[in-house]
């Protein structure tokens, strides 16, 4: 049971970072289906940077910068050049998927993966002394620092969005861009900042995958997590806390799927493919029956004016 919960948390962490980043961008009124691409470039950046610097924190910093800059490309295309956000995002995804093997080839003369990093150069589990003195919670206090950060992040974002001037402006950029412009705030500036920060948050996810949970970058290692994160945003109706719940739920179905595979009885009745498709089946069911109407930010999907 304890292993199961820990596994759920580890699965949910990259999804939480990715969806929180996506949420910021979408709330600012820019459709952002390029989370997948940002995860890839940031995962590659952290693995490559860590190889040369041997410092996970520096590498995380580099990944944040690259993630943010890549989102600025998306921002430039959608906000400044006013191209269609879906097309722009697909461009970013394709660029990420094609560029990373090319750079790997140039840097490490290997187009499939970066060199494996030794354990001491990666993020290591952190014991929280305060938590570890409690009887049950003790078992959950041996995670990477990024895992704890992921759980706190949605609450920080919730408070920032509803209680700061910057957050309210960001929401206005998504729900009523005209009102924002009328009140004399630069719409473009608000959106640029939102997308840059969103890219930084998504980059946490890439770093977690490359130098936290595993020890190298492998081509296309995001394996669809960017799109699952997008689904979590929609299920969470673009609200940070419900999105967090959706992410944990996806982590839960992933962990559950592993548990089910180990049950010999179930394996005889159900083919493995069925068990492996459970996360997607369950999310479809949730979307259809339990959700009601999704309310995206009003300006989303429109080309900027």
């Amino acid at each position: 049971m304890i292993d199961f919960i820990n596994s759920t948390l580890r699965f949910a962490t990259p999804l939480i970072f990715a969806s929180m980043g996506g949420l910021l961008c979408e709330r600012a009124g820019i459709a952002t289906i390029c989370i997948e691409g940002i995860i890839l470039v940031s995962a590659f950046t952290s693995a490559a940077f860590d190889y040369y610097s041997s410092s996970p924190w520096l590498s995380l910093g580099a990944a944040l910068l690259v993630g943010g800059v890549f989102m600025l490309l998306h921002a430039f295309l959608t906000v400044r050049v006013k191209s269609d956000p879906i097309i722009s995002a697909i461009t970013v995804n394709l660029l990420a998927s094609g560029m990373t093997p090319l750079l790997m080839k140039l840097l490490f003369s290997n187009s499939t993966n970066t060199p494996s990093l030794p354990q001491e150069n990666r993020f290591l589990p952190v014991f929280i002394p305060f938590l570890s003195s409690f009887p049950i919670i003790r078992h959950f206090s041996n995670h990477l620092s990024l895992v704890y950060l992921a759980i706190l992040l949605p609450f920080v974002i919730q408070i920032t969005l509803t209680n700061t001037r910057w957050g309210l402006r960001l929401i206005a950029a998504g729900d009523g861009p005209e009102a924002l412009v009328t009140s004399g705030v630069s719409l473009n500036h608000t959106r640029f900042v939102a997308l840059f920060l969103g890219g930084c948050l998504m980059a946490f996810s890439g770093s977690y995958l490359a130098i936290g949970h595993s020890s190298q970058f492998i081509r296309d290692m995001s394996a669809g997590r960017g799109f699952i994160a997008l689904a979590a945003i929609i299920i969470g109706k673009w609200q940070p806390i419900p999105t967090l719940v959706a992410c944990v739920f996806f982590g839960f179905t992933d962990a559950l799927q592993i548990e089910l595979q180990s049950s010999e009885m179930l394996n005889l009745i159900l083919p493995a493919q069925f068990i492996q498709s459970l996360p997607y089946v369950i999310s479809l069911v949730v979307l259809v029956f339990a959700m009601g109407r999704a309310k995206p930010p009003l300006a989303i999907g429109q080309t900027s004016r």
Binding site: H213, D254, A255, S262, Q273
Partner: peptide, 29 residues
């Protein structure tokens, strides 16, 4: 013998984090 599969699509060949989770699950059992 405990048997796990990473996935049902070709993503399964390049998903080290999922494979790691499967291995940790096996080791804990």
């Amino acid at each position: 013998t405990l048997t796990y599969y990473v996935g049902a699509s070709s993503d399964a060949w390049r998903n080290p984090t999922k494979a790691k989770e499967l291995a940790l699950g096996q080791f804990s059992k």
